[in-house]
Amino acid sequence: MGELAAEKHVRYILSIEKKKDSFESVVMEHLRMNGAYWGLTALDLLGKLDTLDVDEVVSWIMSCQHESGGFGGNVGHDPHILYTLSAVQVLALFNKLDVIDVDKVTNYIVSLQNEDGSFSGDIWGEVDTRFSYIAICCLSILHRLDRINVEKAVKYIISCKNMDGGFGCTPGGESHAGQIFCCVGALALTGSLDLVDKDLLGWWLCERQVKSGGLNGRPEKLPDVCYSWWVLSSLIMIDRVHWISKEKLIKFILDCQDTENGGISDRPDDAVDVFHTYFGVAGLSLLEYPGLKPIDPAYALPVDVVNRIFFSK
C-alpha cells in the first residue's frame, strides 16, 4: 500500500494560488470562506498551520462579516449560515475566537431558527438539516447553545429520520450520508444521541462500503472520498466504526492521491481539489493514520482545538 504524501499535500494547499485552473477559481470565488476552512483544517491536521500569517487570515475573515452578524463567502457577499460556521471554525483553529462579538454572531444564528425548530440558511428561508447542524455546531463553539430552542431543533431533526435509520434534508427526504452526518452531529452536540437507532443506522452506514474499500453516500452510487468523512464520522459518533474495513478504506483514500503534485480527488485518477483533499486527510485522521492530528467527528475540528475551546478556562 502507498503512503500519505503529506508534504506534497501541504504544498498543494499552499499553492492553490498558482493554479491556472480557471474553473476551480471561478467556483471558489463565492465560497472562499469554506475553501479557507477546508484548506486550513487540512493544514492543521498535517501539522503545518503555523506556516501562515495569522493576522492576515483573521483580518480577511473579519472583513467578510456583515452588519447582521453573519459572514459572507467573501468580502462584500451576503451573509449565510454556511460561511458563518466556516468563519467561526477557522478563527477557532487559530485560537482567535476573541476577535468576534459573540453576541452579534449568536443573534444572527438565533434569528434563523423557524417556528418548527428547523433552521434557514439565510434571510431567504431555504430550510435543510444541514443548517440545523451548522447552527448548533456554531453556537456550541461560542458557548451559546442556550440561546436557541434546542428541544424544537432536535424534534425537527428527528422528524427527518427515515425507516432505514438514516436522515434526509427535510421530512421524508431520502437518507443521504451527508445529511446523516449533519443530523447525527447535531444530535451528538445536543446530547440527544439516544434518539438515533444506532444499530439500524450503523448497518445502513456500513453497507455504504463497496468492494474497492471506498464509501458511497446512498445505495447503488459510486464511492467518493468525501464520504470517508460523512460516513466515518457518523459511525464514530454512534460507536459503530469497527463495522467497516478500515484497512480497505485507507487504501481507497491513498489511491485517490496525486502523488506527484499533491492533493486528493473524489475517486482514483480524477482531478484533485481542496474539498476532497480536506475530506481525505480528515478521513485518514479519523482512521488514526500515523502522523496526523486527531479530528473531532462532531465539530470537524482538530481535537486539540476542541479541547482548547471547552477546557482551557
Binding site: 470565488e29 479557507a36 492576515e56
Partner: peptide, 22 residues
C-alpha cells in the same frame, strides 16, 4: 473590483470575463 485583501488566504485567479461581470 473584488477586494480579496492584500495577501489572500485562498487566492483565486478569476477568468477575465467572470471578473468583469462581477
Amino acid at each position: 473590483p473584488q477586494d480579496d485583501g492584500p495577501n489572500p488566504v485562498v487566492p483565486i485567479n478569476y477568468s477575465e470575463e467572470f471578473s468583469e461581470v462581477m
